[in-house]
Design a protein around this nucleic acid. Structure first.
Length: 428
RNA sequence: GGGGAGGUGACGGAGUGGUUGAACGUGCUCGUCUCGAAAACGAGUAGGGCCUGAAAACCCUCGAGGGUUCGAAUCCCUCCCUCCCCGCCA
């Protein structure tokens, strides 16, 4: 969440910054009012408590010096005070509840250099790699589900039989290609990121820390009998690694990567662009996460973006970098660059990574702080993340780009060691 | 699933009703010493709220929530979590 003090002390500027995000901001005024009201009540409460504390100490003194009667008198007055305090406490608790309700629903402030916009059309294509439109004019490319289906390495029908739409089932070399991509994605980052194998089910407080709750509850799978949610991305457990911790500045930046399965309900997107591996309820992904100081953030972010691009470059896939405009930013992010791979078989740009900075939005929720060198005060760390390799869409792109006239698929060179072959051939 | 133990500051670890936000140690910061470092010695060092200068004062926080009491880290209840033993099982 954002710093509540911004609403109290810097209201107009904050509203203006949030307005760039094109979200509903009507409740900001109310939030500010509630914050002030709570503060006011808290002050009254503090005063009464101070009086009571003082009296209690005096009573202790009276009892020790044997003045029992005087002590009893004081007890009676304290009893009255206690009732007032209890009433006030109840009010403060209610106010706090309301304040929290609103605060959790205020999105992060966009970065100053984030392009303004009203929607997807205003996103800025920063650069395009390895893509020549002409390359795809002369030759016809088939969609990955046809190519892979004919090869017998993708079995969408059986996936549906087992689990319904938007699930995938890979077979043989298709399954191995998935595993190769994961290995590859981890291997190229192993020197900079610590690999984590986290839990795939997390508690509500963990899910809230990254901003996935309460805003995106309908997008998540929840276990019926336990307080556990299936993670939609490795970001969720990774970001909670240091929750409620105070780190030393020397320990920053921390860089983590995790290969996880991701679960998404994709509510409301049924039937749209869901054919093949474009959009799945369950998929595997290598996620990159960083926790750092505010000063380190710009350089770390640039490096993170480069790290997310690298696998696409090494695999020889055409892709473009899209700087999302303010309207398209996610709830928690201040700046986002999407990486989109061109899939010639379906003639679409597929989002394969969303690299975003969260400033202190998530770390405030998760209470991840650090002690700046030489400072007595602790401060919130900054956090950022991005997909290192999202398998289904990259898998699809590899298939569509590698397809050859005889129905076989050529495997990009970096994957060959993991695949054990440089081509997937039709079975005879 | 059954039985037992326990959750205290960055970390280890005292503390069973009264001025303890918390001994002691480690770590960290500053200083003395040193050419410099180590060691030694001295001092400081929880987080948050309030206060949008700093500080003081005041309030909250010893897993979370409730209760008893004039007063709770300390007593009672509920929940969460961790560890150990037994059972079951991949």
């Amino acid at each position: 969440m954002i710093d509540p003090n911004l609403l109290i002390h810097d209201f107009d500027a904050t509203v203006q910054r949030l307005a760039r995000k094109k979200t509903d901001l009507e409740f900001l005024n109310r939030t500010r009012f509630l914050l002030l009201e709570r503060r006011n009540m808290q002050q009254q409460l503090d005063e009464k408590r101070a009086t009571m504390n003082k009296s209690s100490k005096e009573i202790g003194g009276l009892l020790q010096s044997g003045q029992t009667e005087a002590a009893e008198e004081r007890k009676a007055t304290v009893a009255m005070l206690k009732e007032e305090i209890a009433a006030l406490e109840e009010q403060v608790r209610k106010a706090e509840e309301q304040v929290d309700y609103f605060l959790l629903r205020i999105p992060n402030l966009p970065a100053d250099d984030c392009p303004d916009g009203d929607g997807e059309a205003d996103n800025v294509i920063v650069r395009t790699h390895n893509y020549n439109e002409a390359d795809y004019r002369d030759r016809s490319y088939r969609p990955h589900w046809d190519v892979a289906g004919d090869l017998g390495i993708y079995d969408g029908d059986r996936a549906s039989k087992i689990s319904g739409s938007m699930f995938s089932l890979l077979r043989g070399e298709g399954a191995r290609l998935l595993r190769a991509l994961v290995h590859f994605g981890l291997a190229i980052n192993a020197d900079t990121y610590e690999e984590i194998a986290p839990p795939h089910f997390v508690r509500t407080d963990t899910f809230t820390a990254t901003g996935h709750l309460p805003k995106f509850e309908v997008e998540a799978y929840k276990l019926r009998d336990d307080d556990l949610w299936a993670i939609p991305t490795g970001e969720v457990p990774l970001m909670s690694l240091h929750r409620d911790e105070i780190l030393d500045e020397d320990d920053l930046p921390r860089r983590y990567m995790a290969y996880t399965v991701c679960f998404r309900r994709e509510a409301g997107s049924a039937g749209k662009d869901t054919r093949g591996l474009q959009r799945l309820h369950e998929f595997q992904k290598v996620e990159l996460v960083k926790v750092c100081t505010p000063e380190q953030a710009p350089a770390e972010y640039a490096a993170l973006l480069a790290d997310a691009e690298r696998p696409l470059q090494l695999l020889g896939l055409p892709y473009r970098v899209v700087d999302l405009c303010t309207a398209d930013l996610t709830f928690s992010s201040a700046r986002v660059h999407d990486l989109e791979v061109y899939a010639p078989g379906i003639d679409r740009w597929l989002e394969v990574s969303s690299v975003g900075v969260f400033t202190d939005f998530q770390t405030r929720r998760g209470n991840i702080r650090y002690r700046p060198k030489g400072s007595k005060k602790v401060a919130f760390t900054h956090a950022m993340n991005g997909s290192g390799l999202a398998t289904p869409r990259v898998w699809a792109a590899v298939i569509e780009h590698g397809q050859q006239a005889d129905g076989s698929v050529k495997i990009p060179e970096p994957l060959v060691p993991f695949m054990g072959t440089d081509v997937i051939r039709p079975k005879t």
